[in-house]
Amino acid sequence: MRLSTPSCFYITRTIVSTVNIGILLKEGPYNHQASDTAFKFAEAAIKKGHKVDAVFLYNDGVTNVTKHMDPPQDDRDIAKRWNELGEKHGVGVLACIAASKRRGISDDVIIEKGEITGLGTLTDIAIRNDRLVTFGD
């Protein structure tokens, strides 16, 4: 929907414009808090109206999206959580192919919204977004 109000109106009201954000997650689930912080950050950014383009998984981070995760009922399901973020908010959940191959992660074992892709994609993410925020150990 096109807004008819002149853009200067928004400037005077100092509305923060949408920031396009890429996230790089370098650590696996559960061992470190990195995955949790990355998720909470992504959630808060989306809630504030920003665009979270993608979460790119690198190093052991690629194990965030294995679909056979089955944590105890009272614990968070990290893979499921990333899947929902992809489903509800169109956030790309991307695992690096080279890092995935090393760790036995393939299309067969990842969540529905997960995608295995190359480091070139990360480069594109770094180029096209306003921010790249890294989480890890």
Partner: peptide, 12 residues
């Protein structure tokens, strides 16, 4: 793996 990333990014 950092080095691998750098080599790919270098092509861009």
């Amino acid at each position: 793996e950092g080095l691998e990333m750098i080599l790919i990014m270098a092509a861009y």
